[in-house]
């Protein structure tokens, strides 16, 4: 972090070659350490100042969100507010104001917590994660669908020396509704016990399109594909019931310090049911 900016290419090179060097953006996860961990801490490489990782812009059929975009910036951006209300909702429930001023979308994804609030939203919006790494004297990009990015508990598809540059979120088609609900340990500044995102659309009272994802109910954030397919084609009430019970079948929540497996499973089902039921029956 000493050489605060320099070039992104150089940063990627160093990350690939210097063991123990960790990339940092807002620091709101990385800086949480006991005094003992802090005393033994290695070195960090600051990525927060690279233009390649900043900004929000509509590009063709999608919106680009730089990895270094803070949750405060997400909430304020007109394009995000118009196209991705679920992402705004998630951003407004990440920590408190001070955290939202520092925490970034890229950091939330790289941290790979199964409880990350924004992650189910990226899943249902079918975001593409844009990665960058050094190849000789060039910065090369790689695109990975979000669905394939979190490969296991706290594990990502990032290769050594690779960083998240940003995200491409396809513009939602007409009538696609978005929902987000976080069930935390308190009203604010909480870590999720269950978090659910939905993108969907009904026609003639029946569910036509449905994407569901949840966090804190498995080792990674998960798309609830069985719940989706159980619901599509059904009338709203039946679809909600089917999605709720299928969601419980396809997830494996655990008991931990924040909640119980039984609560998480039941509440996942109830929240999925509630969110599906909240869809407009006919979006025409």
């Amino acid at each position: 972090m000493a050489e605060r900016c320099g070039s992104l290419l150089e940063a990627c090179r160093r990350l690939a070659t210097e063991p123990g060097l960790r990339p940092i953006l807002g620091g709101t996860d990385l800086m949480v350490a006991s005094p003992h961990e802090r005393a033994r801490q290695g070195r960090w490489l600051d990525l927060s100042c690279f233009d390649e990782m900043r900004g929000i812009a509509e590009r063709g059929g999608s919106v680009w969100i730089g990895a270094a975009t803070t949750f405060t910036a997400l909430q304020a951006d007109a394009s995000i507010r118009r196209h991705f209300p679920a992402l705004v909702a998630a951003a407004s429930e990440v920590g408190g104001w001070q955290i939202q001023n520092r925490a970034t979308l890229g950091g939330n994804v790289a941290n790979a917590s199964p409880a990350g609030d924004s992650l189910p939203v990226l899943a249902v919006l079918e975001a593409v994660v844009v990665l960058g790494s050094a190849a000789g004297d060039r910065l090369v990009e790689r695109r990975v669908p979000y669905a394939g990015f979190h490969v296991g508990y706290r594990a990502t598809a990032l290769a050594p020396g690779e960083v998240i540059l940003g995200f491409e979120l396809p513009l939602p088609g007409p009538g696609l509704e978005q929902r987000f609900q976080k069930v935390g340990t308190r009203q604010a500044q909480a870590i999720s016990k269950v978090v659910v995102a939905l993108a969907g659309r009904c026609a003639g009272g029946r569910v036509q399109t449905l994407r569901l994802a949840a966090g804190s109910v498995a080792a990674t954030p998960v798309r609830l594909r069985q719940a989706e397919s159980a619901a599509v084609g059904l009338e709203l009430a039946a679809a909600a019931e089917a999605a709720g019970s299928a969601a419980r079948q396809e997830t494996t929540p655990i008991d931990d310090v924040r909640s119980t497996a039984a609560y998480r499973s039941a509440v996942l089902g109830r929240v999925v049911r509630r969110l599906v039921l909240s869809l407009t029956p006919d979006s025409e």
Binding site: R186, Q187, A188, Q189, V257
Partner: peptide, 27 residues
């Protein structure tokens, strides 16, 4: 409503402010 200490073999599991939950202004 909120404040809980769970024990595992005599160890408090809620030993940080991220896990020992007190009311915020929203609560």
């Amino acid at each position: 409503l909120l404040e809980e200490i769970k024990l595992d073999q005599g160890r408090y599991l809620n030993d940080r402010l991220a896990t020992y939950i007190i009311p915020t202004a929203m609560d």
